[in-house]
């Protein structure tokens, strides 16, 4: 049964006319932002009243926050609750962004999306790979943003698909997978955030290894090792992160994976895993149980070259 007492949180909230109002703060990126998202998650747990997210104090909403907010609304709905944005509280700048990336049209009768620097918000309950790969190739790796050859665009889309494959195969998210992206023309970077509301990487690894006490960072490290997978089907698996790591290495991009109180970062300085504590800001109570993946690629085409020769050696 849902408890009517909200968790203590650094995020402002109040009851007003039988509604539970949550003041979403400005949310940028990185571990501190993940802490804010965890706070939002914790805050709405057990709330029986209709939940309204107000953006009156919000000056910036990253693409990760957009995808998370959409997913959180869907999760509340799937749990029998009612939630939505107070659209009157949204600043003109953020409203334009939410219209442009299609978030507004998803939740209201607002118009959008249209082409800009925001990569469209999307919700996927099932893995219709043709739709998702079309999205990655045409809405994220847009020709105007990255001057990739068709082969390179296909190869990068395949590597990024591994994120979705993991989410759909392992997460068990009751509301599916949520995506949003952003192009930063001055920084010549492309971000993509993929979020599920499933059981999370640490929980999957702990169950697979039959070790409830395994710290989150060790679980994240285990999952990051080539060949390791919690897939029970007896297939050789566990290459998804390895494939992404290759892309990051060549492109000089980065990958951040947050799940429970665990963090795994892949960048030019290698791979590192950390656990909770002050790293995730002001988490109070249980951390977010799902997984957030933030991939950043550099748009410079010279940073990524395809080897065109095929080795002569036998494959097997």
């Amino acid at each position: 049964m849902r408890d009517s007492t909200p968790t203590m949180s650094a995020i402002a909230h109040r009851y007003f006319r039988d509604r539970f109002i949550v003041d979403v703060p400005s949310i940028y990126r990185g571990p501190a932002a993940y802490g804010q998202l965890c706070d939002l998650w914790a805050l709405v747990q057990g709330v029986e009243a209709e939940i309204t997210f107000s953006l009156r104090n919000c000056l910036f909403l990253s693409q990760t926050a957009v995808a998370f907010l959409g997913g959180l609304i869907r999760w509340i709905e799937s749990s029998g609750g009612v939630a939505g944005l107070n659209w009157q509280s949204v600043s003109h700048r953020i409203l334009t962004n939410l219209r442009q990336n299609g978030f507004a049209a998803t939740f209201t009768n607002e118009y959008g999306p249209w082409q800009g620097n925001s990569v469209p918000y999307r919700e996927d309950r099932v893995d219709v790979e043709a739709n998702l790969i079309g999205y990655l190739k045409n809405s994220w790796l847009m020709e105007d943003w990255v001057h990739f050859t068709p082969d390179l665009r296909n190869e990068v889309a395949g590597k990024v698909w591994e994120i979705y494959a993991n989410a759909f195969e392992h997460a068990g998210s009751p509301v599916g997978v949520f995506t949003c992206g952003q192009h930063f023309p001055k920084a010549r970077k492309l971000d993509l955030s993929v979020i599920d509301f499933g059981v999370g990487i640490p929980a999957n690894v702990r169950e697979y290894l039959i070790n409830d006490e395994l710290p989150a960072e060790q679980a994240m490290e285990w999952a990051a090792q080539r060949g390791n997978t919690t897939n029970p089907r007896g297939l050789g698996r566990g290459l998804g992160l390895d494939v992404l790591r290759e892309l990051i290495d060549i492109n000089k991009g980065s990958l951040e994976i947050y799940s429970h109180d665990g963090f795994l970062g892949v960048g030019t300085d290698g791979t590192s895993a950390q656990s909770g504590g002050p790293y995730f800001g002001s988490i109070d109570g249980d951390p977010f149980p799902g997984t957030i993946v933030v991939l950043t690629l550099r748009c410079d085409d010279l940073m990524y070259t395809l080897a065109s020769d095929q080795p002569e050696a036998p494959l097997f």
Partner: peptide, 15 residues
């Protein structure tokens, strides 16, 4: 065929 990912090859060939 344009796009490839490891789950496909794992099931089709690796297996």
């Amino acid at each position: 065929c344009q796009v490839f990912a490891s789950p496909f090859f794992n099931a089709a060939i690796g297996q």
